[in-house]
Nucleic acid binder design. Structure first.
Lengths: 214, 214, 214, 214
DNA sequence: CATGAATGAGATTTCATTCAT
DNA sequence: GATGAATGAAATCTCATTCAT
């Protein structure tokens, strides 16, 4: 069973909004089965059984097994990067005096929360990104535009105010996301819970790594 | 086709030693197909066709489709971590006055070379680690003993001589391997070649991140 | 095609109760093919063809080729021994003054009727008992308890009233079942119909053989 | 491994006479494997392995897997019935004053000895007779001529001297062979050793059953 | 709409037999 | 002759998808 938080988040994202009860049952059952066995090893029969629904429903509601996968992946794909810094952009604009530590700390911890709340779906997303070139292409094309803008602004601001090392934004991003990704993968695939201490050390490491004065 | 370097490495590892010509053709064809489509999406029929060999041949040497996968994965799994610091331990022992920069630089660049030479097989290995819990268990159990010892010694030495921050070795390793992994994944799955500049920045980032005096 | 009587018996045993039309067609086709070629020489493809059904159907109902065999064998296995003397025990209890001739005659003729009605399935059952150790173990363990009790009572009664030779019940049973088995095998495998005269002589032989006064 | 007696008998029957060492190794290995797994479940690879011989030898020496089976079955098929009463016919002619008990006793015990000495080969023979219609036809046609003559003479003699019931010879034979067969099958397939007592009771049963004066 | 029986393409695997060495 | 790698037909089984009821 998906935990309450995970379901709540899906609800918040209005994923369920125009789904019937059966669709929701199929959808949540699929998340569990895909996460446990992987997309390719999961059978529509098993999903239908877990959803307590006739197999045919999957196809009338999601067209395809692949359509079901997409319905699951799409919301995560959208929120994995885009929402990242929304905390800064939407409600309150980026503060001019943003410190490097604040920036890194909020980014890392926000994503740790996201991880905690979306384990299963993230696992499915990562697995398919790794396994399927089509999925890779499909979701790669979605990131840049919206996200790049926001993050570039942030990084440029930090550089301009000499709070961050003057490397390519892409390199900086890779360094930041590598550390986040390392914790995500450790957690999802090797069940190593990121402790507060470890997260703080990762933040400290990033702050030092990106400090321009060293 | 596998590039020359990759084949050379397999030859060095005596992987081909008790294989006939056709078995080698199967083996290399399988690497290509598995890397391109993923293990589950690859069919033995396609592998046999690409190897220009009768399908039955696969099974007389490798028992199973899974046996073929293992034959491919095993050599990488063994060399992905263990050999890592062999440069220090085997020929020349760890120098007492090892600097943090030397340590990080050699570790990172050695693994970048390894990546360059084993793209396809690494891709297969990573994909299966991500996709298959069994593979995860199977290879997880192999790492620790031999590897942990070497790396712990190195980290402890650096800490003792106040050249490295005094965090848990596990945390330090996760930070280092996350950065390496980030570049590996960018390269393998998104075809982003790690430029010398990017690698050097990653090394610099790590050195700063782990510097105890900040 | 299975003859009418054979199908009737299966219907009576509610074998067909939760089967669709196509599944029944598979089941009866399988009996014919297994009986003709033996389980191992029969292919699911041929069974499906004879049933005029897609091959996959076999597996959705019967799981396995072996599952199909079991579905066929089980009903015979249950009725080959257990029901044997039910004529005496169920409707009318064993008469105290049961004569040896009555006992043997009813036993033999009842089994000859059973044979007539279940040729194909008996052939399959016997063939698998002979060919497959697993089947042997599987069905051996099912006989004793229910059956032994009934038959022992009968034999003990006949011995107590000095109507039957005082040998081990097991020996007596072996002698009786050998004669029955001989006719069964002659019929099933060599197409030698047991004539009334031959059956009567067999009964006479048994009665004399087991007569205590000789 | 075949026991000594069984090998001795094959030697006596000159089965090995024009076989090379390798052929003999294949032959005896095949008997073991066929007896254990059945002809269809035995693979030529396993036989070759057990014979410690390259697989190709099987085909150069016995043409076929089937040819190997035939080479094994043929000698038993010939001796299962034909030699039966050779004790009487060859060295010493049938005594005019042959008693029913002598006749039955010698027949039954001779076959019990035969059984003891040829378990594996008999098991193979019976299994294939039951499983394969071709084998059935092939060996059925061989019995009658030689054997019928001898046995008919014996039965007719006993009938003429009023020592045996006046039933069809075929019926008498079926009764005799059923009892023998019952013990053979119990032994071979259910590992129930025929004790002296059980054999004697079977003989007694037959003598009584065929006694004309009851 | 909902159901789940039916479909059949396709996947893995086995194995007797051949034949180059 | 001896070997065992190579063959490829055939077998069992899975499963997304369709569609009659």
């Amino acid at each position: 069973m998906l935990n309450h938080t995970e379901l709540q988040l899906l609800t918040d994202a209005h994923v369920f909004d125009d789904m019937t009860d059966k669709q929701i049952k199929i959808y949540t059952a699929a998340i569990e089965v895909f996460a446990e066995k992987g997309y390719l090893n999961a059978s529509t029969k098993e999903i239908a059984a877990k959803a307590d629904v006739a197999e045919g429903n999957i196809f009338s509601k999601f067209t395809n097994k692949r359509g079901l996968l997409n319905a699951i992946i799409e919301p995560v794909a959208k929120s994995i990067f885009p929402e990242t810094l929304s905390s800064f952009t939407d409600s309150e604009p980026i503060p001019k005096d943003l410190s490097l530590h604040e920036f890194v700390d909020s980014l890392v911890k926000d994503r740790m929360d996201f991880l905690e709340d979306n384990q299963d779906v993230l696992k499915i997303f990562i697995s398919e990104m790794v396994y399927d070139d089509q999925v890779r292409q499909q979701y790669l094309s979605k990131f840049p535009d919206a996200y790049w803008h926001t993050i570039n602004d942030n990084l440029n601001l930090l550089k301009a105010t000499h709070k961050m090392v003057n490397w390519d934004n892409w390199e900086i991003m890779q360094i930041m996301w590598s550390l986040i990704g390392g914790m995500v993968i450790s957690f999802i695939f090797f069940h190593i819970q990121p402790t507060d201490k470890a997260v703080n050390h990762a933040v400290a490491a990033l702050v030092k790594a990106l400090n321009p004065r060293l």
